[in-house]
């Protein structure tokens, strides 16, 4: 076993990946506040809602249910019966390009 723990090439690789992720963040995150939340299941849009009106909608599909809430210009998933609850822990979104994804239910909420 003659492999080192860390080499300069490793650090170069890590720096490249960090630069890559920062670039993607800069490209995709426009700081502008969005004005509507687009909800889609299975790549089919099932509803577009303005962020200016508070709303609670339960989305029931064959995969399960997600309760999507719009409150004070922010959108979040309040409740869901998916296995991991990742969509709930994603928290609130309000900026253009931000999204909440629930993979088990094939649900995406995207701000536009």
């Amino acid at each position: 076993m003659n492999r080192k723990l860390v080499t300069w090439l490793d650090i170069l690789l890590i720096v490249l990946f960090v630069i890559l992720s920062i670039t993607i963040i800069l490209v995709f995150s426009s700081s502008g506040e969005g004005n509507k939340a687009v909800i889609s299941v299975d790549e089919k849009i099932i509803g577009e809602y303005s962020l200016n009106t508070d709303l609670t909608r339960e989305i029931k599909t064959d995969y399960g249910f997600n309760t999507v809430v719009i409150l004070n210009g922010e959108c979040f998933v309040l409740d869901a019966d998916c296995r991991d609850g990742i969509c709930i822990s994603r928290g609130k979104i309000s900026k253009v390009g931000e999204s909440i994804v629930c993979l088990p239910h094939k649900l995406i909420v995207e701000i536009k």
Binding site: I14, V18, S40, D42, S99, I108
Partner: peptide, 18 residues
């Protein structure tokens, strides 16, 4: 499987992967 919206997660997952 779910479409384009997930690209937003990529930088965070990249960081996490590092």
């Amino acid at each position: 499987t779910v479409g384009g919206g997930v690209v937003f997660y990529l930088p965070f997952l990249l960081f996490a992967g590092i």
